[in-house]
Design a protein around this nucleic acid. Sequence first.
DNA 1: CATGAATGAGAGTTCATTCAT
DNA 2: AATGAATGAACTCTCATTCAT
Lengths: 231, 231, 231, 231
Amino acid sequence: MDTTAPEEIGGEKAPPVAPFSQLREPPSTQRGARTRAALVKAARKVFERDGYLDTRLTDITKEARCAAGSFYTYFANKEEVLAAVLLEAQEDMMHPGMGRVQDTDDPYSVLEASNRAYLAAYQRNAKLMGLLEQVAQVEPEFREFRRRRGEAFIRRNARGIAELQARGVADREVDPVMASRALSGMVSVMAYNAFVLGEGQEEEGTPVDFEDLVSTVTRLWANALRFPGHR
Amino acid sequence: MDTTAPEEIGGEKAPPVAPFSQLREPPSTQRGARTRAALVKAARKVFERDGYLDTRLTDITKEARCAAGSFYTYFANKEEVLAAVLLEAQEDMMHPGMGRVQDTDDPYSVLEASNRAYLAAYQRNAKLMGLLEQVAQVEPEFREFRRRRGEAFIRRNARGIAELQARGVADREVDPVMASRALSGMVSVMAYNAFVLGEGQEEEGTPVDFEDLVSTVTRLWANALRFPGHR
Amino acid sequence: MDTTAPEEIGGEKAPPVAPFSQLREPPSTQRGARTRAALVKAARKVFERDGYLDTRLTDITKEARCAAGSFYTYFANKEEVLAAVLLEAQEDMMHPGMGRVQDTDDPYSVLEASNRAYLAAYQRNAKLMGLLEQVAQVEPEFREFRRRRGEAFIRRNARGIAELQARGVADREVDPVMASRALSGMVSVMAYNAFVLGEGQEEEGTPVDFEDLVSTVTRLWANALRFPGHR
Amino acid sequence: MDTTAPEEIGGEKAPPVAPFSQLREPPSTQRGARTRAALVKAARKVFERDGYLDTRLTDITKEARCAAGSFYTYFANKEEVLAAVLLEAQEDMMHPGMGRVQDTDDPYSVLEASNRAYLAAYQRNAKLMGLLEQVAQVEPEFREFRRRRGEAFIRRNARGIAELQARGVADREVDPVMASRALSGMVSVMAYNAFVLGEGQEEEGTPVDFEDLVSTVTRLWANALRFPGHR
DNA sequence: CATGAATGAGAGTTCATTCAT
DNA sequence: AATGAATGAACTCTCATTCAT
């Protein structure tokens, strides 16, 4: 219930949005490649630490230990480095890689594994996801990026729901796409609240246990689609 | 399933956060009151049009037809006007006022009415909700404000779920608070996607019909809690 | 042979070019007017001293004894101050005001007076004329400004030549406009060489006497049109 | 009336100005010679296209298909390439090569041929002349270069005028040097207006016919010196 | 209370020049 | 000789905030 080709985002279907379509050509020398990599790494670190808006270009170059001007050898502006950062993290974030689900045909287990994988990936990249939410509020290109990422998940889940409906496992009354929007959304809000907002506020809220999260959303999702055979 | 005292936000339980604790005392003269009101109104307009970050203080004073300096007679900074704007809209946004649901005890109808009221309120204040999402990404005080608003809904819905569980109408396996987080979250994402992001993109997506929205989320919510006696 | 309405430049016939169409509205307070005037005055001084390109905006504000930011209260950029400077000097530069030529009908005297007035005005504003030549090489709007200024002189001189031809005083073989282009051009190069380039190089060239200049160009001009009755 | 030794500019009389006194010795290898030539050629192209100021060194190296650093193997800076470009074009610009004027002693025909040759050369090198005007406004060394070039023409024309005066063909009242300054200036302004400014504005002005130009300036020049025997 | 000009710190960006490879 | 990445000084412009009138 969770397998999208990476090109589906910023790829084949829709044309990539501005800052993602690499303008600068990749560095031709090794030294150049090293510097570029250092900048991307530094950018991720600083963005995650200070947020997109509070990051000055010089903070990045300082962190990457290079001159302010060097930044412009590789990127036209803040947006472009961020795009590079996201592109680099994309793989891991889109392919939760849910391990091998025992090839039980049991839909509940598959669903649970899928959710666990999604949530684990979200947690691993929590800082970046928080960053994406922030930038999406501010830069249309990244709003679009976020939308496409979301759509990819919604589409693959809608496909899964439709299959289950065909097999008589899921309620046929609901529209698979609408249901997918709602349930995928449900999972992502939970993830956002737990891993992005939940961080650093252990003092004031309930820290939410990872497995509780998995089982709650899985249970609700299964119920919502009226998986049969519930105890 | 939807009745919170307004003070619950920015009120009794938790102490109000900085920009909401009015520093300035209300203007003493009538003229002052008029100017202040004009500023708040202008601020809402400009914020909704240009976004929080792209709004310059002078845009607000220009819109309010008063001098730049006058702003500081009433507010210390951008955050404070925004707080005033939100406080003013709060009432409508927290008390969806779901009309009189026929005092049928039918939980499904009550749920549906509640969702309809929530979604309608969200739609009415869509611009402002979008604004809130934006500021929450940028100003901690508003992140807190948003959290409290969310918590209020979650708490009242958790209470409703617990009641239904007590009456044997809802699945007793799920934790009422966790379930409320998940389902309330589900509804709010749908609202955000439909009314905040959905605007102005009628061309590229499915505009989503309001009643479809209501029935989908209600159906999924009811299923998730395993309301009995489905048609 | 020398009377143009000031509006003829940047006026009625052709619409004014960008930096001349004052964007900023004039300051409403007296203090504002004072600051603006100080900036224009300072700008002229610095421009004439350092040239357009080597002038930093802060040089101007420093000279005007105001903060860097204040500049932008009145002008959008360097071009706009320069436009203000030129506009202010325009009057004097376009209306040489050749004194009262004895109403002798003597065309030679009239011509001579006209040339003397033109050259005197050029000399008075030599620095500014040099500046104009510089900017015209760099900013199309000012190239256009220079062109219009030139055209104004050419047109009025062409009119004068045509009249003299009608009265039988000037050679009827030449085209009045072409002749005016050539002869007006001749006078302006001489002025440029003498007053703009001639300055500060007294050591290396012949400083050229003002009256020699007047009589040379007048004589050549008269000859070129074959004024009769030469001694 | 038009024969100057090439050394007269940047040559014998006055010592050559900085960027013209070749610092670098000519490249020793063939490969070096090729690169240098490519750079000069590229520089001329880019300068003429973008103007001196808007040309970045990398634009030149890019056009020449060589690395940024290679530039400094041959030139110390922008000025120096430009000097090289001008030096290369100099020959053609100084020796209009007016064909063989039938050795009629007819001064009018000689004058006309001379003017035609001058104007044709100007037209051939119009872009470069425009460039020279631009740089002269910005770099003293090129102002000096332009001055010397002008002086060369003025001197040879002054000599011509003096001869005609001696032969009784030209008005003896005028000072040959002053007259030459004025009349040579007249021709060069006309050329500048027609060939440098006139380009690309065919739509808005009279494109000026080449032969009209020749005959107008020749006629006015002859008149100004009072050549006898006018029809 | 209202006004609107004045302030000035701070950010992004460019590009000639250097230099290790 | 050639390469092309690295450098960093310099400059413009923005806007929240103050304050004299």
